[in-house]
Design a protein around this nucleic acid. Structure first.
Length: 472
RNA sequence: CGCGGGGUAGAGCAGUUGGCAGCUCGCCAGGCCCAUAACCUGGAGGUCGCCGGUUCAAAUCCGGCCCCCGCAACCA
């Protein structure tokens, strides 16, 4: 059986889930569900990233132990995905014992191999924060929190020989052995490799306690990225053993937003090479949402939480609205107003209203049908092609064109004016069939409503029932 | 000269093998009245950022310029 393994990034627990996390996760779920309908053996992983200085200080701020704090936020993520009907097969937390142990095993192997070596890390250290700062964190050369200039400090750290894998990775990326999509993202990465190239990267921290101890030197903890990446393997039950692929590895598709593309196209595959494991087949980068033309940010107070959307539109509509908001892979602009418009136009007036008018005509005329799911081969193929190419918006457009055509035929033929049952049936049967077929193809996007429509339109005597999407 | 994306009708967007400029929403006028005041048809509305080039033909290819946005590895 064909295998399909899809991942989202694991989300950092310094923040609660917002529409950005939701976008990646719903998209992954849509793909996972679609591949399940193809009968593939699929595994869908998501989770949370819980170590690092930021979490340590955030927990401290709230007067909690880091683990306790992480437990709380991880629970919020789990709850959000449950609410959105996300069908993940596992939820990996980097504080899971098995994960931490596997990370240690893996790093020990890389160390023994000589891919990790002791070195010095030079950086700007703020005594107030007790943390290193990057140039970008500083305002006028000062720490924004403490208003003091950070000092140049240097400390020993274990460093990963990332540079060693430069040529091999560039080659594999160019040849699409590690396929980066959309193509412009591949170009971006190739040009990064060619123009800037890979430098070795620090893989341990000495002054951060909230992390996985480096097995051969317990005075260090594992740098969070090194810890986090391995989730894609440990989430499958991998024990950390080099060269030993767990059942579903390599990943068929890894979804993420553009902010973390570079590390996923450099450090992550380099670690895999170091561990003698195959690279993921594809990584797909989607865009960012802007809200009313502005970047989403806490300070602007325009952050949209998934629970807010679900409360207003319901689960299935929320999934639809997020996925249809923009071409997948591009940035998009969203707003409550646009969501309202789209909900009414596509769901209430579109799918919902068409289903209501057709089912009502069938019921009042007592017309019996015996419809079969998936009877429209052409529609199936067109949608499949779009889904394979990660063009979710295109797939939805194909379905809606079909539904619109149904409305037009009804207006044209006016079956409600006819008396002859056979004539009415001739008009309604194909449209009802289209609705059924469309519902079937909509399953990955709107699992619950689709099932409802399928049940409704598979009945011999189709009945009107309640509105699918009440107008807002 | 760090890298990348974008600038197409009032709004939001699609549109790379170059071939009369499209979609959704909104607006106007008709129609319909089965349906969730929903649906259908028609219409108005665009110098496809600016300048130049290639071509029989450019939103689409090439060069230059202006503007907006994202990223820039220890920020997870």
């Amino acid at each position: 059986m064909k295998k399909f393994y899809i991942t989202t990034p694991i989300y950092y627990v310094n923040d609660k889930p917002h529409i950005g996390h939701t976008y990646t996760t719903v998209a992954a779920d849509v793909l996972a569900r679609w591949h399940r309908t193809l009968g593939e053996d699929i595994f869908f992983l998501t989770g949370t990233d819980e170590h690092g200085a930021k979490i340590e200080s955030k927990a401290k701020e709230m007067g909690l132990e880091p683990k306790r704090y992480a437990d709380e936020v991880a629970a919020v993520f789990k709850e959000a995905w449950k609410e959105l009907n996300i069908s993940n097969d596992n939820f990996l937390r980097t504080t899971d014992e098995a994960h931490m142990k596997a990370v240690q095993t893996a790093l020990q192997y890389m160390y023994n191999k000589g891919d990790i070596y002791l070195s010095k890390y030079d950086g700007l250290y703020c005594r107030g924060c007790e943390q290193y700062k990057s140039e970008r964190d500083l305002v006028d050369g000062l720490c924004p929190d403490h208003k003091i200039a950070p000092e140049k400090m240097s400390e020993e750290c274990y460093t990963f020989k990332l540079s060693k894998y430069q040529d091999e990775l560039l080659e594999k990326i160019k040849k699409d052995e590690l396929k980066i999509l959309p193509p412009n993202r591949k170009n971006e990465i190739v040009s990064f490799y060619e123009k800037e190239g890979l430098e070795d990267v620090s893989f341990s921290r000495k002054n951060i306690n909230w992390g996985i101890p480096i097995p051969w030197d317990k005075s260090h903890t594992v740098y969070v990225w090194a810890d986090a990446f391995l989730n894609y393997l440990t989430g499958l039950g991998w024990s950390g053993e080099a060269g030993k692929s767990p059942k579903f590895w390599p990943a068929s598709a890894q979804l993420m937003s553009k902010d973390i593309l570079r590390v996923h196209a450099t450090i992550w595959p380099a670690m895999l090479l170091s561990l003698d494991l195959p690279l993921p087949e594809k990584i797909f980068i989607h865009g960012y949402f802007q809200i009313n033309g502005q970047k989403m940010s806490k300070s602007l107070g325009n952050v949209i939480a998934p629970a807010d959307l679900v409360k207003k539109y319901g689960v299935d509509a929320t999934r639809y609205l997020i996925m249809s908001a923009t071409a997948f892979g591009h940035d998009g602009d969203i707003s409550w107003e646009k969501f309202d418009d789209k909900y009414n136009a596509d769901l209430a007036n579109g799918l919902g209203n068409l289903a209501a008018r057709v089912s009502n005509l069938l019921e009042t005329n007592k017309i019996k049908l015996n419809l079969r799911i998936g009877s429209d081969k052409k529609l199936n193929e067109e949608c499949a092609a779009s889904m394979q190419a990660f063009k979710f918006d295109e797939s939805l457009k194909i379905l809606w064109d079909k539904l619109r055509a149904g409305d037009a035929v009804l207006s044209d033929k006016k079956p409600w004016k006819l008396k002859d049952e056979a004539a009415i049936k001739n008009i309604l049967e194909p449209i009802a069939g289209d609705i059924l077929n469309a519902a079937n193809l909509l399953k990955p996007f709107m699992p619950t409503v689709s099932e409802k429509v399928i049940k409704q339109f598979s009945a011999k005597q189709i009945k009107k029932g309640e509105p699918l999407f009440p107008r807002i």
